[in-house]
């Protein structure tokens, strides 16, 4: 009992300046360690960079497709073909009636003459059309709904409602393919998410394994540090910083890969878009996404290193 009372505590105090200086020193010395084996580090970083770039590239693709779809959304319309012999006055009355509908954003009237002219300009049948005695084309109303992403069931109801007007022969929606395209985009989006999860796990394992090999290579050093009083935190620190650097550099490599890929695709995409009378341009990564990817990669790096150190440090006791 007396002996217990005599037991003294240890001095654990560390000045904040010393603590900071120690962290700063380990931060840069762990960077130096990567630099000491440039080829090995570069290969690991490239593998990690590609693993991060793959889901990121898919994410970028989805973003661009959504942007493209939103452009098409605003141009997507319902074509309402009026009955033959409907006169101009009736058409105008119908347009006025439809304009009161909340669900309709805009209506464009294409007269038979205008339709014939457009057909002549955009088809190879100009000479054949000259042979026709009468213009067989009806009045058409192009209706632009307020919400271009109308669900299929609602769209059917809406088309039926349009067809209920006595002047209307047929109502056709060209929104369905946009909806299908959106469906495909959602699948790609989900695939990107699944890929991101799987490749994040791969990044975690690659960094964890790299750090594990590093720990095993420095087994003697770790045992000697423990002999002279190095705590687990002291030993763990350089490996965690190494994980930090792996995460940071691999995310930067991924950004460069994405940038170069986008650069390579920019001209062909613009050319293709121009063929469809579109001024669509590939957009890059948003700043929030960029920062998010860098932050997540750094966290994955530290986590991978932590797991490796936690698993192996306990086995390394000096004897």
């Amino acid at each position: 009992m007396k002996a217990r009372k005599r037991q003294q505590g240890f001095n654990r105090r560390l000045r904040p300046a010393t603590w900071l200086a120690r962290h700063a020193q380990v931060l840069f010395s762990s960077l130096g360690r990567l630099w000491q084996r440039p080829l090995g580090s570069l290969m690991t970083l490239l593998v990690l960079g590609i693993a991060i770039a793959l889901p990121l590239g898919l994410h970028l693709l989805v973003n661009n497709l959504q942007q493209l779809v939103s452009q098409w959304d605003s141009g997507a319309s319902i074509s309402v073909f009026l009955k033959e012999n409907t006169d101009e006055k009736t058409v105008k009355t119908l347009v006025r009636t439809l304009q009161t509908e909340q669900t309709i954003r805009d209506i464009r009237h294409v007269s038979p003459q205008q339709a014939m002219e457009e057909f002549r300009q955009h088809s190879d049948f100009a000479s054949a059309l000259e042979l026709l005695d009468d213009n067989p084309l009806p009045h058409v109303l192009l209706i632009y709904p307020r919400d271009a992403k109308i669900p299929a069931k609602k769209l059917q109801v809406f088309l039926q409602k349009l067809e209920n007007h006595p002047e209307v022969e047929l109502a056709l929606a060209d929104l369905q393919w946009v909806e299908r395209f959106q469906g495909i985009t959602h699948i790609i989006q989900r695939a990107a998410l699944v890929l991101a999860v799987l490749l994040s796990l791969a990044v975690l394992l690659i960094i964890g394994n790299t750090i594990r090999l590093e720990i095993q290579g420095r087994r003697d050093e770790i045992e000697i540090i423990k002999l002279v009083g190095g705590s687990n935190a002291f030993i763990r620190r350089p490996f965690l910083y190494e994980g930090f650097w792996y995460g940071l550099f691999s995310s930067l490599i991924a950004m460069v890969l994405i940038f170069l890929s986008a650069l390579a695709l920019q001209n062909p995409v613009s050319h293709l878009a121009s063929l469809y009378q579109s001024d669509f341009q590939l957009s890059g990564l948003a700043i929030t996404t960029t920062l998010g990817v860098i932050g997540s990669s750094v966290l994955l790096g530290i986590l991978g290193a932590w797991i490796a150190v936690h698993q192996h440090l306990g086995d390394m006791e000096p004897d």
Partner: peptide, 23 residues
């Protein structure tokens, strides 16, 4: 049995204090 070093009872020493004792 019990081992005492520099007034520390090593038998009761917590693992976190081992590095401090070694110093």
């Amino acid at each position: 049995g019990q081992v005492w070093v520099n007034k520390h009872n090593l038998t009761r020493l917590k693992p976190a204090d081992v590095p401090l004792l070694r110093r």
